[in-house]
């Protein structure tokens, strides 16, 4: 192999600038974390709401929430990025579209976050729905029999149990958010993958570049995993597996 190793490359200055390659990687890491965490907040909020609605007594509500899930999980994420970036602004009323294209602050970041958040929400919704449906019908009846309204029954009885049960699959989704955020480079978010490509082209040190990026993604996903493990442990119910009799 005729590869010229250069482990000092991270601290070298970029061509024609006074930043180092490490600065690029740190910037990229920051955007990756920012996109992922913001998208996760959207995904959890919308996902829980849509997951609940999928178990609602109204057929219309179930149909709409099912349509939401199917829309966002049947289109490739990369295509969704392009749709949000190039197509959606054209479909908006003219004024709004112009604002999105010209004046919206952090346009790429906003678009990528919304796209990734909506995409992940459909997956979270499915987990939440499965969690709610795995709870025995008796729990719902017990809540209603105590005088709780249906929304109160969800709030105080069904969701706390369901969410505990779906922490393991939600852990995977949380990790996926970090990994999927790499797709945001396609619309120009200067996140980790974007910076990696830039660094590789600029420095011609592909192995060192992608090794660093690999480690940084691993750190993100692994941290997400550990955070969820702590939450899972703290949410454990003494003497019980959630929802079991």
């Amino acid at each position: 192999m005729n590869y010229h190793w250069n482990w000092g490359i991270y601290l070298e200055q970029i061509k024609g600038g006074d930043e180092t390659y490490l600065d690029w990687l740190i910037t990229g890491f920051g955007w990756t974390v920012a996109v992922s965490l913001s998208a996760w907040v959207i995904a959890l909020t919308l996902g829980i709401a849509v997951g609940v609605l999928r178990t609602a007594p109204s057929k219309v509500v179930v149909a709409i929430s099912t349509a939401w899930v199917e829309l966002f999980r049947n289109i490739p994420l990369l295509v969704q990025m392009f749709l949000w970036f190039f197509v959606v602004p054209e479909l908006l009323p003219r004024e709004w579209g112009l604002w999105v294209k010209q004046d919206m602050p952090a346009k790429e970041f906003m678009t990528a976050t919304i796209c990734l958040g909506f995409f992940t929400s459909s997956r979270v919704a499915e987990q939440v729905r499965a969690g709610i449906q795995s709870i025995t019908h008796g729990q719902r009846m017990a809540g209603l029999a105590m005088g709780f309204t249906l929304p109160q029954t969800y709030r105080y009885i069904l969701l706390p149990t369901a969410l505990r049960m779906v922490i393991p699959p939600l852990t995977s989704e949380f990790m996926n958010v970090f990994k999927n955020s790499s797709v945001a480079f396609a619309i120009g978010v200067m996140e980790l993958t974007f910076q990696a490509r830039q660094m590789q082209e600029d420095s011609e040190q592909g192995i060192e570049t992608f090794l660093a990026v690999t480690v940084l993604y691993f750190v993100c996903a692994f941290t997400a995993n550990r955070v969820m493990a702590v939450i899972e442990k703290r949410a454990q119910i003494p003497g019980n597996i959630a929802g079991q009799h």
């Binding site: 025995t136 008796g138 729990q139 009846m141 017990a142 809540g143 209603l144 029999a145 105590m146 005088g147 709780f148 309204t149 105080y156 009885i157 706390p160 149990t161 505990r164 119910i237 019980n240 959630a242 929802g243 079991q244 009799h245």
Partner: peptide, 21 residues
């Protein structure tokens, strides 16, 4: 108002249905 009525009608189930969490 069913919730209001149910609040004053006690019910005990076969499988207890205590709230596990």
């Amino acid at each position: 108002n069913l919730p209001k009525l149910r609040a004053h009608v006690g019910m005990v189930f076969q499988h207890f249905e205590l709230f596990p969490h």
